[in-house]
Simulated assay, not measured.
Amino acid sequence: MTSQTPARPGNYKGAVRRGSAPAVVGWRWLDHLIHVHPVTTVAMFTPVIAACVWFSLGEADGWALVGWAAAGYVTWTLSEYWGHRIVLHYEPEKGFGARLHYILHGIHHDYPTDPRRSILSPLLSIPMVGGTIYLASGLGSLPLTFGAGYTFGYLSYDLFHLYLHLATPKSRLMRHLRSLHMRHHFRDDTKGFGISAPYWDELFGTSIARQPRSNDLAT
């Protein structure tokens, strides 16, 4: 599929391509900045987590810092849900908005097994992480462990999302979570926005229910 691919409507069930996607821009080096390798993401954000923890020492007692880290993680899960639902699945029909949507997320739906397209683009991850740390710890004067929890949540989500696409989970829980995400990809992409935190779909009414078996329909 070329970089001119238009945005997709809801409930999209178009052809899915396997393997690596073509470049989304004319320059290969720029394409590798827009969509980075998973190792690059780990290398970028692991030091951010470590720095937030280090510089937060002494800002509050230990349990308070742990609590703020947990609050940062929960805040990330809400960012994951609403960012996926409102930002990544805002799909203009044409023009720059359609092109941007395809670059940021549409290409992932077309090439779901491409590792670089399964990792959130730095065009989004850097502003989200950096902005949250600045607003919470800079303007809001929260301990930096809040930023550590938020960044850890983001990085965990990215790697978890990659795992669901490329691995074959063995545990019952992981198989269930993979099933939920595959329903988002292949049944209805207007639902199932919480990948590492599917409980928000239950709360906000966007859960993808399992399709009943044919013998259940007959009863």
Score class of each variant (00 low, 15 high):
Leu180Trp: 01
Ser179Met: 10
Arg183Gly: 07
Lys191Ser: 01
Asp201Gln: 13
Glu202Asn: 08
Glu202Phe: 07
Lys191His: 08
Phe193His: 05
Ser171Asp: 07
Ser207Glu: 07
Leu162Val: 10
Tyr157Trp: 00
His161Glu: 02
Ser207Val: 11
Ala197Pro: 06
Arg210Pro: 05
Thr168Met: 07
Ala167Cys: 13
Tyr199Ser: 11
Phe160Met: 04
His181Gly: 12
Pro198Thr: 06
His161Asp: 02
Phe186Met: 14
Leu177Gly: 01
Arg172Cys: 07
Arg172Gln: 12
Tyr163Trp: 10
Arg172Thr: 13
Phe193Arg: 04
Lys170Tyr: 00
Ser196Ala: 14
Pro198Gln: 03
Leu159Ala: 05
Pro198Asn: 03
Leu162Ser: 12
Gln211Lys: 09
Asp189Gly: 11
Leu173Gly: 02
Leu180His: 14
Leu159Thr: 06
Met182Thr: 10
Pro198Tyr: 01
Glu202His: 08
Thr168Pro: 04
Gly205Pro: 15
His165Ser: 04
Leu203Thr: 13
Tyr199Ile: 08
Arg178Glu: 13
Ile208Pro: 08
Arg172Lys: 13
Arg175Asp: 12
His184Thr: 05
Tyr199Gly: 02
His165Val: 04
Arg178Gly: 03
Gly192Asn: 05
Met182Phe: 13
Ser196His: 04
Gly192Cys: 02
Met182Val: 11
Asp201Cys: 11
His161Ile: 00
Ser196Asp: 08
Gln211Met: 03
Pro198Leu: 00
Thr206Val: 07
Arg210Lys: 15
Ala209Pro: 01
Ser171Ile: 10
Leu203Pro: 15
Ile195Lys: 00
Pro169Ala: 15
Pro198Ser: 03
Gly205Met: 10
Arg175Tyr: 14
Glu202Tyr: 10
Trp200Cys: 07
Asp188Asn: 15
Ser179Phe: 09
Arg210Thr: 14
Gly192Asp: 03
Leu164Met: 15
His185Lys: 04
Gly192Met: 00
Ala167Ile: 05
Leu180Lys: 10
Phe193Thr: 10
Asp189Thr: 11
Leu180Tyr: 06
Leu173Cys: 02
Gly192Pro: 04
Lys191Thr: 01
Tyr163Lys: 02
Leu173Asn: 01
Ser207Gly: 06
Thr190Pro: 01
Ala209Val: 07
Tyr199Met: 11
Gly194Tyr: 05
Met174Lys: 07
Ser207Arg: 12
Leu159Asn: 11
Phe186Gln: 14
Leu166Gln: 14
Met174Gly: 07
Ile195Cys: 10
Lys170Leu: 05
Phe204Gly: 11
Leu164Tyr: 00
Leu177His: 02
His184Tyr: 03
Phe204Trp: 10
His184Phe: 02
Ser207Phe: 08
Arg183Val: 07
Leu180Val: 07
Gln211Cys: 02
Arg175Met: 14
Gly205His: 12
His181Ala: 12
Ser196Pro: 03
His185Pro: 11
His165Gly: 05
Ala209Glu: 15
Tyr157Lys: 02
